[in-house]
Write a protein that binds this DNA or RNA. Structure first.
Lengths: 239, 239
DNA sequence: GTCGGCCCCGCCAGAAATGGGGAGTGGAAA
DNA sequence: TTTCCACTCCCCATTTCTGGCGGGGCCGAC
């Protein structure tokens, strides 16, 4: 399982991929190269819609979606709270729903071993890169030990490609804020009231208001909260 | 520059590191191994305080903090909006503040070339891993091309260690929001007024208020705007 | 040399959000 | 089973925000 894999070639192919189908084909090749049962990339959008590709059976993917397993799957919730890759054995399978999910998964052809890598994008995009296999604990530990780094890189590259292919909602040219506007937005994002911000910046509350309105206008925001949200997601302020 | 680097050894040492000093020592070794001028890990915390280690001079680090360059540094804002590693040349240095910052940086011993990797943790932790050097464009392109993958891995491992060593305020376990709370926060972040949110969710405005207050409490936020900011930076909602 | 951006200040009135009470359902976990 | 949590609804008074009016000075670019 997974001896002598040369990831470099595949990653080179990956960097030239431009469509969903290529990624799908690529992940199948990687699955074969690593000699595991399944390899899956699964993007979970904050709004709940999902995107992915991989080698799970269509039946299982459909069942996962139908049953809304996203809200039950300990792999998703576990990875969402972690940074490092995680072996499925270390997740919390104690709830009844989780055990039912696992049983269902095994019946749909998944292996008993899994290893998932959480990965995140700038606007909170969250995805999982998972390898799944049927084997004993020792063999699996050796596999993950040997290929952990390659898997991290693959997760990274797949996520980058997925975000390219599926840009979602970016592409709005962020209009820069003036220094004072940045100050105002930043302090507001930190929870200061307008009065406090004005005092902190040693300006009148009215002047502050002018900045806020100006920033709101530049950001195309409907109110202050909206402006803060946009400034944050566009990286115009950092808190 | 950077020929025949064996990252594996250093990464092995990295996984056993347990203290800030070890990380500092390690990054210096890596800097030498890669033969670049500087190598820096820089964590920007959700509340604006910073942590890091690396090979920039103390004078420059101090100046960066004193002058609050965090709010000006195009590397930070640029990486914050991206997923893939970025060459400093591709960032937007057009603002006056950015150019002044760059001039100051060069005068404090930084090289003209830089390559930074954004990296994110589960609760919105955001960090940069940067290599900096003084050389021509071609040599630099070759360097980043050759070592890009190693750098990604190093960024990943350093970030993992930094989060271990410095739980910081993430020691406040990010209390999850209930589905309704997420709905409310999300719509507010999109600019809806409370009345609109209540109508959209088909609940009374009073009920909505309970959610907002509950979310505010869970997030330790002082007001709604603050709550939205925290929810966004902690990745609890996505807009 | 005007024009636009940024910086700063005042007053007023209406709209919206906040903070403090209270009360009841249902479902899931311990 | 009991306890906890999510979810739903209501009134009150107060604070805060928003929108509109007016004014001034400084700088850099066209």
């Amino acid at each position: 399982m997974g001896n002598g894999v040369n990831v470099d070639h595949v990653l080179a192919d990956l960097s030239s991929a431009t469509a969903h189908e290529e990624l799908q084909e690529l992940i199948e090749r990687l699955r074969d190269a690593f000699g595991v049962d399944h390899m899956v990339y699964h993007w979970v959008d904050g709004a709940g819609d999902q995107y992915g590709f991989g080698t799970y059976s269509d039946a299982w993917v459909q069942r996962y979606l139908d049953r809304n397993y996203l809200r039950v799957d300990p792999v998703v919730s576990g990875c969402f709270q972690r940074f490092n890759p995680v072996d499925w054995k270390r997740l919390n399978w104690s709830s009844r729903a989780a055990r039912a999910f696992l049983k269902d998964a095994l019946e749909h052809g998944l292996g008993n071993q899994g290893y998932s890598i959480p990965i995140r994008g700038p606007a909170g995009q969250f995805a999982l890169f998972t390898v799944n296999h049927n084997c004993g604990d020792d063999a699996w530990a050796e596999f993950t030990e040997r290929h952990g780094r390659d898997l991290i890189l693959m997760a990274h590259y797949f996520h980058g490609k997925a975000m390219e292919i599926r840009p979602g909602r970016s592409s709005a040219p962020p209009q820069p804020l003036s220094p004072r506007e940045v100050d105002a937005m930043t302090l507001l994002a930190l929870g200061y009231s307008r009065a406090q911000v004005a005092q902190t910046l040693s300006i009148s509350e009215h002047t502050l208001r002018v900045y806020i309105e100006s920033a709101r206008f530049k950001l195309g925001a409907l109110n202050t909260t909206h402006a803060i949200a946009r400034a944050l997601t566009q990286g115009l302020i950092v808190v």
